[in-house]
């Protein structure tokens, strides 16, 4: 089976607190903080987007992988906020990290599951012998409509993985996917903000697919929650991943290292992949990790990883995700946020 050879995560420095957003819309910040288990979220600067964050996360992944980027045979960026409607993000990423011209490239979209979809496809291509290394990225700078519940969580970040035939830092033991047609969240063409179906995004959407995928994944490999050192679930807010983990029988301690959303927000395609990078940062050789993504529309990809001895040699070669999240940040007010996210109508 394929393995993760290198990994890296990147998030912008700007943060906005739940109180700052709630103040503008007359909402009750404590109830949002308690209900969604969110404190603050990352905000991209005007010069940061899915492409720039993908490049920075991939530079870190390459530092840990230590491979010649020209050996990368596939470059896949999963995002629902690709900067262009028509023109790939992956070509810019591939040029920036030196992976051109002999590589297959395509952009992926599946709401918050596009990053794990890119990982899944790279693993298949490696296992099938079509490529030596694949580069899979999950990145987003998603927007929530002003005043909508999503505005408290829609954040920015990226995670990048170099996937290859050797075991690397984590062996991919197996994968599993679970999906149905479920219209819980969408954005129509030419629309700036997404729409969602309120509470319908919970039980029939997130919980059905994450539970279905996690249970199917564990059954496929013959493992139970107690067999895993850690579990990472998609994090649309702080509450859902903890709740679904407990429903499956995982403890808070198993979930916490990759549980970034309370202070990062929902980085959409980057969400569970970034949680995985934070978990790799603390995992020990031999640890088993369950990862389950979720993308509205709807589907989940499941992965079982086993950490190898190599993790100890490479984890310090690039910034650790949790340390970067906690240390390098600056708080902005709603006016600055509105300017950065282009929510202000400008003169012609």
């Amino acid at each position: 089976m394929a393995g993760i050879i290198g990994y890296g995560a990147y998030m912008p420095r700007n943060r906005i607190k739940v109180e700052e957003i709630a103040k503008i819309w007359g909402a009750d910040a404590p109830s949002y903080k308690k209900g969604l288990m969110l404190q603050e979220k990352s905000v991209p600067s005007p010069d940061q987007d899915t492409i720039t964050m993908s490049v920075e996360a991939t530079k870190y992944a390459l530092k840990r992988a230590g491979i010649d980027p020209t050996r990368i045979g596939a470059v896949y960026v999963g995002s629902e906020s690709h900067p262009y409607a028509v023109k790939p993000s992956g070509t810019v990423l591939a040029e920036a990290v030196g992976a051109t011209p002999e590589a297959h490239c395509a952009d992926f979209e599946f709401a918050c599951k596009a990053g794990s979809a890119a990982m899944f496809v790279c693993m298949g291509l490696v296992d099938g012998g079509k490529i030596e290394y694949g580069l899979a990225v999950g990145a987003d700078t998603s927007q929530g409509a002003p005043g909508d519940a999503l505005e408290y969580s829609a954040a920015a970040g990226a995670a990048s993985f170099i996937i290859g035939k050797d075991d690397g830092v984590a062996k991919v033991i197996d994968t599993y996917s679970f999906m149905t047609d479920t219209p819980d969240f969408w954005r129509r063409s030419y629309m700036h903000y997404p729409r969602h179906a309120g509470r319908f995004t919970g039980e029939p959407a997130y919980f059905k697919h994450v539970l279905g995928c996690a249970n199917g994944m564990m059954e496929k490999v013959g493992m139970k929650p107690k067999d895993f050192a850690y579990a990472v679930f998609h994090q649309p807010n702080g509450k859902f991943p903890m709740r679904v983990g407990k429903m499956l029988g995982f403890t808070k301690e198993q979930i916490e290292p990759g549980w970034l959303s309370p202070t990062l927000g929902n980085t959409y395609s980057g969400s569970s992949p970034m949680g995985l990078t934070a978990t790799f940062d603390v995992a020990n050789p031999g640890d088993m990790i369950l990862m389950v993504s979720y993308g509205s529309g709807s589907g989940s990809d499941g992965f079982v990883y086993e950490m190898t001895d190599k993790i100890d040699a490479v984890r310090d070669l690039a910034p650790k995700t949790r340390e970067k999240l906690d240390s390098d940040k600056v708080y902005i007010d709603y006016g600055t946020y509105a300017k950065y996210r282009r929510k202000i109508r400008m003169g012609e």
Binding site: Q48, I51, T52, P83
Partner: peptide, 16 residues
């Protein structure tokens, strides 16, 4: 760091 440098209006290319 890799950043967006400028953009050619609303419809032009993005320059990184």
């Amino acid at each position: 760091e890799f950043r967006r440098i400028r953009e050619e209006g609303e419809a032009g290319i993005l320059c990184y």
